[in-house]
């Protein structure tokens, strides 16, 4: 029983962090006997050897390379001819321009690789990156703001004097874009570009390598692969998907996102007070969330969650509002501390 306890400490000392107190306890136990020390050495060596995992594979390099070669040939042929690009004709809505004062929410799922994009003018490209659990605010030269969520990167020009505003995103971000109809705002992802003619919107680019997905809440957005002649035009409550493997487009209608969150697995918050955000999260996951700091109830929150589990969603909310997340059990959580930079009006 006693030994089990110390062996557990040894495991933990490899896989995680031991508190100084526990480390002391362990050290004392180790100095108690040769046998204890031996047990530690055995575990340590096993742990070390475990990083050399390998396996023998039967591989015929010629055959397997030929398979890649075939794919390349098919792909290159496809590009020369008409390809499989299907652009769905879109009836122009003449009132898309009206709700400029309203936020345009865009949901974007896109490629995993960070592509540096040259700006049309020779403005210098800057880059911002976030690590686990970090959220950073980026002020763009035109007055637009971007909140970069964790594990994301944004490259953007230090000046925006060309005839378009172009940035490159990997990861997820919330955009608040200064209105300027003569200079479209363009977000590049690995395979596609998203053009925005609205004001404020949300973009989320996930590490999915083949699809770019855009959901437009309000406003108007175009989605196309690089240099697409006939991009897909998306307006309010429309969803577009570009599949880089088949190079095809699909467009569909989306009803109110939150009302079908159970089915779409998507929750969207656009300047929503925390009180309502937590209620939605409780309903969606069937959990209980207790908020300690009642001052935050009216704090506004922006984000979109697609197919995220409760841990991820709550982590994101607590990160943004600098709260601490405590898991009471798997059905109830507690949020403590926190500060609000975005309250009231």
């Amino acid at each position: 029983m006693e030994k089990e306890f110390y062996i557990d400490l040894i495991y933990k000392s490899f896989s995680g962090d031991l508190s100084a107190e526990k480390q002391n306890q362990l050290d004392n136990w180790l100095s108690e006997s040769e046998a204890n020390r031996k047990e530690f050495d055995v575990l340590k060596k096993t742990w070390e050897m475990s990083s050399n995992f390998s396996k023998d594979f039967e591989v015929n390099l010629d055959t397997e390379f030929a398979q890649i070669q075939n794919r390349i040939d098919a792909d290159e042929k496809g590009n020369v001819k008409e390809a499989i690009v299907k652009t769905i004709p879109v009836a122009r809505k003449n009132n898309w321009w009206k709700p400029l004062s309203v936020a345009a929410a865009i949901l974007l799922l896109a490629g995993a690789f960070f592509v540096f994009n040259q700006n049309s003018k020779s403005a210098e490209m800057l880059a911002m990156e976030t690590l686990d659990g970090e959220v950073k605010e980026v002020a763009l030269a035109d007055g637009s703001k971007v909140w970069l969520n964790e594990n994301s990167s944004l490259s953007y020009p230090d000046a925006m004097n060309g005839d378009e505003r172009r940035v490159t995103l990997k990861g997820e971000a919330f955009f608040d874009i200064t209105k300027n109809p003569s200079k479209p705002f363009i977000i590049d992802t690995r395979d596609a570009e998203v053009k925005v003619l609205g004001t404020s919107f949300e973009v989320r680019a996930m590490d999915d390598e083949t699809k770019t997905e855009v959901v437009v809440k309000t406003g108007k957005v175009s989605l196309g692969k690089k240099n697409e002649v006939k991009p897909l035009i998306l307006t309010k409550n429309q969803k577009g998907v570009y599949n880089n493997k088949t190079q095809g487009y699909v467009r569909s209608e989306v009803k109110d996102l939150n009302s079908i969150s159970w089915q779409s697995k998507t929750m969207e918050f656009n300047d929503v007070v925390l009180e309502k955000v937590l209620t939605d999260i409780e309903n969606h996951f069937d959990i209980k969330v207790t908020l300690d700091n009642q001052d935050l109830l009216k704090c506004k929150f922006n984000s979109i969650f697609i197919d995220k589990d409760q841990d991820a969603v709550l982590r994101a909310v607590s990160n943004v509002l600098k709260m601490k997340l405590v898991e009471t059990n798997d059905k109830s959580y507690r949020l403590t501390g926190g500060e609000c930079r975005n309250t009231g009006e």
Partner: peptide
């Protein structure tokens, strides 16, 4: 994650 790592090293041991 921690639980799973502990399980793995137990199995290896």
């Amino acid at each position: 994650v921690e639980n799973q790592l502990t399980k793995a090293i137990k199995v290896l041991r």
